[in-house]
């Protein structure tokens, strides 16, 4: 099932949750909606699910208008952030719910329902919990049951709202891998919302980065990390050094110091220069685009993280390999292996 969203606008009072969003999701994709809270990602997901309606715009599934249908008719599996398991039902009955409420004409017989639920519980590897109540499960188990429940109705699309948001770090990591392999197995078009970039980059085939109700960038995990399209994406994904620079007369200046960097192709005016921490190469003083004094060094496994006061006045943090030990008080030169400049402040 492919999904197409065109020019979606949704306001809550004066707050624009979605401000003209266009998105195409291909059949079988596993897509991440990534953004800070309030970026509109959950609103977008809820509109696709039919739990909310846009003020304007279109949503279509395989080319047919989805907004004409309610959530009930869309056959979309939705996994809620807090799981929304029915607490008075056993795990088994939770998963069976979607099958039991089907119209009588197409409802399966009890044996088929039981077999199907068993199959789903096997799929999420929790068949041994069938008779428990949700309150007796751990967070990760609830999450998997919520997923099994959503899959029971054989959804055309699977939507997950912050699927791992309420879990602790270790369980999150396990479930990420599990979700990816599960998607590989069932191959349903899936969208999940997250504010965790690591999660998005690790799990998804494609990442949609959102901010303030708009899409900032759509691309593969490599794309959004390696070639961020906007300043927001660069600072939101991965750890960046951000410096306010001025571009004039083919020169880039930081404070009042011209940097030894080529300004070609960039519009003159106040801009921001972004460099990944690990893209700053350390050299002897006088080499490289920047010069600074090491203030402070800490070791993080394979890298050393140094706080460097640039001679322009800014203080930055860099990650350097351990092969050359840095010491507080050293004066060093820094050369960005790669950098990006975005106009504006």
């Amino acid at each position: 099932m492919s999904i197409e969203v065109r020019n979606l606008v949704k306001k809550f009072g004066s707050f624009k949750a979605l401000d003209g969003v266009d998105l195409k999701v291909d059949n079988g994709e596993l897509l991440a909606l990534l953004g800070p809270s309030g970026s509109g990602k959950t609103t977008l997901l809820r509109i696709v699910a039919g739990l909310d309606w846009p003020d304007s715009g279109e949503v279509s599934f395989n080319g047919e208008d989805a907004l004409a249908q309610g959530a009930r008719e869309r056959h979309v599996g939705f996994v809620f952030q807090h799981y929304a398991l029915f607490r008075h039902m056993t795990v088994f009955e939770n998963v069976a719910f979607g099958l039991r409420v089907q119209p009588r004409a197409i409802r399966k017989d009890e044996a088929t329902i039981r077999a199907r639920v068993k199959e789903l519980l096997d799929l999420v590897q929790l068949d041994w919990l069938a008779d428990r109540y949700p309150s007796q499960l751990s967070g990760g188990q609830r999450q998997r049951i919520a997923l099994a429940r959503a899959l029971a109705i054989e959804p055309r699309i699977l939507l997950l709202d912050e699927p791992f948001g309420a879990l602790d770090a270790k369980v999150r990591k396990e479930l990420r891998k599990w979700l990816r392999s599960l998607h590989h197995e069932i191959n349903v078009t899936s969208i999940f919302v997250t504010h965790d970039q690591e999660e998005a980059l690790e799990v998804a085939n494609r990442v949609v980065v959102m901010d303030k109700g708009k899409i900032e960038q759509i691309g593969s995990p490599d794309d959004v990390y390696e070639s961020p399209a906007t300043a927001f994406v660069h600072s939101f994904i991965g750890e960046s050094i951000e410096l306010p620079v001025l571009i004039a007369d083919g020169l880039i200046t930081l404070g009042d110091r011209p940097l030894r960097l080529a300004a070609d192709g960039h519009a003159p005016g106040a801009s921001r220069l972004f460099v990944r921490r690990h893209d700053m190469l350390v050299g002897p003083p006088g080499s490289g685009a920047f010069e600074g004094a090491v203030r402070h060094v800490r070791n993080f496994g394979p890298v050393q993280r140094a706080e460097v006061a640039l001679s322009g006045g800014e203080t930055i943090e860099i990650d350097a390999p351990r092969d050359r030990e840095l010491r507080a008080g050293d004066t060093i030169g820094l050369e960005p292996r790669r950098y990006r400049i975005f106009a504006g402040t």
């Binding site: 309606w53 004409a68 309610g70």
Partner: peptide, 28 residues
Amino acid sequence: MQIADSVSLSAPDARARAHAAAARNNLR
């Protein structure tokens, strides 16, 4: 065909929208 559909379906489409307006609230 799709384009033709979307043109000719404009009237039923309006009805579908009205139906959606009714459907949108009845979840809760």
